[in-house]
Amino acid sequence: MDKFTRTLSLLGAGAAFVVAAPALAAPPSTTAVVASPAATARAQIVDPLTLTKTSDLDFGTLVKKTTLGAAETVVIDESGVVTCTTNLLCSGTPTAASFDVAGSADQVVKVYIAASTLTAPGGATLTFTPSSSAVTTSPVLDGSGNASFKVAGSIDVASTTASGIYVGNMDVTVDYN
């Protein structure tokens, strides 16, 4: 009887030997995945642009011949050379406009030029139509961040165009985009 009882006790204790597994901590992940090739981030940071006029545009002196009738288009090119027309005489010292632009090195600069109105003291006006290779071929700032460009253009002169010195502002804008 004694032996039998003892045996049962041992068995009772044996039941406690079945131990529950402890809760596992989250294992370190070996499955995290990266993109290959990696995605990139880009930012272009630039200094503000400055635009400085170094020369105004001047067509020089245009003399209307008596044979002048309908409007004739007088063109000045970026070298400052005026192409005179049949019924005008051109003289004086014509010059193209020139500008210096400064900003961040190696950047491409877009040039925008608007047509403008030239006005004489009596109130007569002429329309100035600008042209510049810088509009079609954007200047590129050099290693020091500098570039320059010229502006040329044209005006129409007719026999009815009043005499006078016609002056107007030229709207030139530069931008990185």
């Binding site: 995945v33 990266v34 995605a39 981030a41 272009q44 630039v46 200094d47 642009l49």
Partner: peptide, 19 residues
Amino acid sequence: KPLVLTAKQNLDFGTIVLA
């Protein structure tokens, strides 16, 4: 299945002027 991650478009902030 194993995850596959691909970059379809890179990020670009554009042009920032230090005004």
